[in-house]
């Protein structure tokens, strides 16, 4: 972790940096105690310490949306959040999406079904982020038109270019909900 330093500069550092501390995260309804360093991002905590590898690391800089998860039902980029700052929050990852939709208590979330139905992916790497982001979009309730969906999904990049089908998949579920 620590980069090479010239001799003499080490003593300028604060005396006792804690390498790890106990952080309690509530992910998909389950509370877990982790021993992690404060610089561990929520993304790394999920993937490297909790084996929840559904959430993907794409750019690691908040530019691609592959790491999107829900914190207190709001979508965020988990790569730009420190795990230690999310103590006490309700975190939902792609692994916890199925069965959470009120109209479909068991099985896949309607968005998951719709993504399959509409073939809304090619390689699938961005898909967990796309689906979590779409769940967030539905929670927010601001998307009324196809153009709104496109604009409000712009934080999720798909390098295979499956955008047309992704928008269709989301629109199907929104229309279903409205009907």
């Amino acid at each position: 972790m620590m980069p090479a330093v010239e001799s003499g500069t080490l003593e300028k550092r604060p005396p006792s940096l804690p390498s790890v501390q106990t952080v309690t995260l509530t992910v998909n309804g389950k509370e877990t105690k982790l021993q992690i360093a404060p610089w561990t991002t929520l993304l790394d905590a999920l993937r490297e310490y909790m084996d929840l590898t559904g959430t993907k690391k794409g750019c690691d800089h908040g530019q691609c949306g592959a790491c999107t998860v829900l914190v207190n039902d709001k979508r965020i980029n988990s790569c730009l959040s420190l795990a230690i700052m999310q103590e006490g929050a309700k975190i939902t990852t792609i692994e916890g999406i199925a069965g959470t939709y009120t109209d479909a208590p068991a099985g896949l979330h309607p968005l998951q079904k719709s993504f399959i139905e509409r073939d809304a992916f090619q390689c699938g790497y961005c898909t967990p982020g796309q689906i979590c982001s779409a769940v967030g979009l539905m929670n927010e309730g601001n998307a009324k038109t196809t153009a709104d969906i496109r604009e409000l999904m712009s934080g999720n990049i798909c390098r295979c270019g499956a955008y047309t089908n992704i928008v269709d998949a989301i629109e199907d579920v929104l229309n279903e909900k409205a009907a």
Partner: peptide, 9 residues
């Protein structure tokens, strides 16, 4: 500005 995810944070 930004994306919905970033605006939420």
């Amino acid at each position: 500005g930004a994306s919905p995810q970033l605006r939420n944070m």
